[in-house]
């Protein structure tokens, strides 16, 4: 997601065109549409199978999981498995940590990039070009290109094993800034002029005019950033050591058996995996419209 640039000029238009379901209906023969339905349905089923299989495993007892041939129907151990996974992985605490991290990063990034986009579009100030350039360059500095040194900074700040460490360093956002900047530029100048005539200062204008107008963009950005924050792996691995500060995505790794002496309790692992993947998937499902908008807008 990081370094995708100005490649999709037509893509937004394409997707927008594709959106209305009522579009189309051509003189193509009907069987063509049927083949298409079949193919897409097949694709969805193939894609869904691993998820279904993981869910099925999470409902089986250990004996059922390790029996051959593999059983492909849900069984009755679902409650036991989820309770066991919840307890053993300290899932409650880890899900809270993940929630704090995902929400913190999403809300932080949105606020910070909204403010900088506002400054860049609505003010003339010395060094504006430099600021813009600096924000752009962060696209080229993902975590892997500064692993050891970033950890050093976090350690020097005393932020290891803290929520500050998990969230604040990831709050800078070129993508968000560019998104809001682009959006602000489409707002007619007359609006700011009218606000000024009415005696509204810049912050009043931001709060009462720009903010309400930006709701759709904020929601779109929120879905993308929540998913990003929830699923981030390398960062929480770097800045947390204590088990109670680990996030769910990295905590689950501890359940995977690494040696022959551990019981291969795949039903428990899959139950944990289900709990970890549910929140971001639910956010995508419930905010579907914003999610698609976010995908298009942030990749520009």
């Amino acid at each position: 997601m990081a370094a995708a640039g100005a490649t999709s000029g037509t893509l937004a238009a394409d997707l927008a065109r594709a959106v209305p379901a009522t579009a189309v209906r051509r003189r193509r023969p009907d069987w063509n549409a049927r083949v298409t339905h079949m193919l897409l349905l097949a694709a969805v089923l193939v894609l869904a199978f691993p998820l279904y299989y993981a869910f099925v495993i999470s409902t089986q007892s250990l004996a059922e999981v390790s029996s051959l041939p593999p059983r492909l129907l849900p069984s009755s151990s679902i409650l036991d498995n989820y309770a066991e996974a919840w307890q053993r992985a300290k899932m409650g605490r880890m899900l809270v940590n993940s929630g704090v991290m995902a929400l913190g990063i999403a809300l932080g990034k949105i606020s910070i990039s909204l403010l900088s986009a506002f400054a860049i579009v609505y003010f003339n100030f010395r060094g504006k070009q430099l600021v813009f350039w600096m924000i752009f360059v962060t696209l080229m500095l993902p975590i892997p290109v500064r692993i050891v040194s970033t950890y050093q900074v976090i350690a020097d700040l005393g932020w290891v094993d803290t929520y500050w460490g998990l969230t604040v360093p990831l709050m800078a956002s070129a993508t968000g800034t560019f998104l809001f900047r682009q959006f602000f530029q489409t707002i007619p100048d007359s609006m700011a002029e009218a606000a000024q005539l009415d005696g509204a200062g810049p912050l009043r204008f931001l709060w009462s005019f720009l903010l309400p107008l930006s709701k759709a963009n904020m929601a779109a950005l929120f879905v993308i950033l929540f998913v990003y924050g929830w699923n981030e792996y390398l960062w929480p691995l770097l800045v947390t050591n204590r088990p109670e500060m680990r996030t769910a995505v990295i905590g689950i790794e501890a359940l995977v058996p690494r040696s022959g002496s551990q019981l291969p309790e795949w039903n428990i692992i899959m139950a944990a995996a289900m709990m970890v993947l549910l929140p971001p998937v639910a956010v995508i499902l419930f905010m579907q419209r914003w999610f698609v908008k976010g995908l298009i807008e942030t990749e520009k």
Binding site: L47, V227, N231, V276, L277, P280, V283, I284, V292
Partner: peptide, 11 residues
């Protein structure tokens, strides 16, 4: 089709 987008690579 877009649902797997929400699943972490690790999961």
């Amino acid at each position: 089709l877009l649902l797997p987008y929400g699943i972490a690579p690790a999961i």
